[in-house]
Amino acid sequence: MSRPPLLVIAAGGTGGHMFPAQALAEEMLARGWRVRLSTDPRGARYAGGFPEAVERGVTSSGTFAQGSPISRATTPFTVAAGIAKTVMAMRRDRPACVAGFGGYPALPATAAATFLRIPRLIHEQNGVLGRVNRIFAPRVDRVACGVWPTALPKESKGEFVGNPVRASVLAQAGATYLCPETGPIEILVMGGSQGAGSFARLVPPALEQIPDALRQRLRLSQQVRPEDMDRVRAVYDGLGLDADLRGFFDDVPERLARASLVISRAGAGSISDITVVGRPAILIPYPSAADDHQAANAAGLVEAGGAFMIREEELTPEGLAGHITAILSDPEGASAMAAASHAHGRPEATQHLAGLVEELAQQGRAE
């Protein structure tokens, strides 16, 4: 009896790479495939959420952009050793397909698949290719794009797939949107470590400047760093604002479903969650993001009419207050933004990505 086909997933480094990789692993296991995760020792630390049925292959890799001059000088040798080890492993147990998710831990397996001419794809979470994905985009059979548009080399074959989201987000997909003309209105402010500090400075004075009648109806959920908590709480208490302030929300999907407006950074994962649920958003890209990729992430949703984008260097409390007031004072317009956001979402991203894996594997068998 023949063994099930093998998918090698090459990923590591951050949750942005590992979460969609994990979603694909779960789907391919459900489809009867074997799955092996190829990563480096750093990436292996982020693999705790992967199913036990996923094999782990830990291979040396390295970054050319960080570390001491000595470590950067030895990186080519480290990466070459990792590629050689991976080539031998793939010759012993040849994958039907290799899926790379970017980051330097994905480099050895993606390079080995290219050398062995194994069907392969890469998934790019952001609107600008990361360094490793930039190398391989012209050399793979398909570039699965998490946001659209994504800037790609001319030789690349790109396809808008979306970013796989958690099951808890899918459970809220297309939740009924409400922006009532009377009664409570909920706002969710989420920024993580790259947004909480800036939002703690900007959101409180913005809410001070919105019309009194609107502010009295607001219920606010905001992520706030511990060092900012007392100051922000004092402002909201002084305004009589109903505010739930926490360092971390473990129920973001439910809060998204209740929200009439989301204020957020423009990370690929955040935008995917917002659009799968379908909520109007004010997006404030992280200004230090590599290659300004958060602005690229936001571009498609803004063009679709589901969000406004404000550059942080252009952001003022007065400007933010104006956007909040304009959206929440126009229930019909806010509902149209919610519908545009939901239309831009890709709740089927995991299934689409799994379908690409099977398609490329089938083409490889036919050759």
Rank of each mutant, 00 (worst) to 15 (best):
I9H: 07
A23F: 07
A25N: 04
R42N: 14
R42F: 13
E55S: 14
S60D: 14
S60R: 14
G62Q: 08
P69I: 04
I70V: 15
F77L: 14
K85T: 11
M90T: 00
R91Q: 14
R91L: 14
D93N: 15
A109V: 04
A113M: 09
T114D: 07
F115I: 15
R131L: 13
N133P: 15
A137M: 10
L152V: 01
K154M: 05
V161E: 00
Q172K: 15
C179L: 05
I187D: 02
G192S: 03
A196M: 05
G197P: 04
P211K: 06
L220C: 10
R231C: 07
L239T: 10
D250T: 13
V252R: 04
P253T: 08
S260C: 05
S264F: 07
R265F: 02
G269E: 02
G269P: 01
R279Y: 04
P280L: 08
I282C: 12
S288H: 15
D292E: 09
Q294Y: 12
A298Q: 12
A299I: 00
A304P: 12
M309C: 14
I310V: 15
I324T: 03
P331C: 05
A334H: 09
A334W: 06
A340W: 00
R346V: 01
P347Y: 10
A349C: 13
L356V: 12
V357H: 07
Q363W: 06
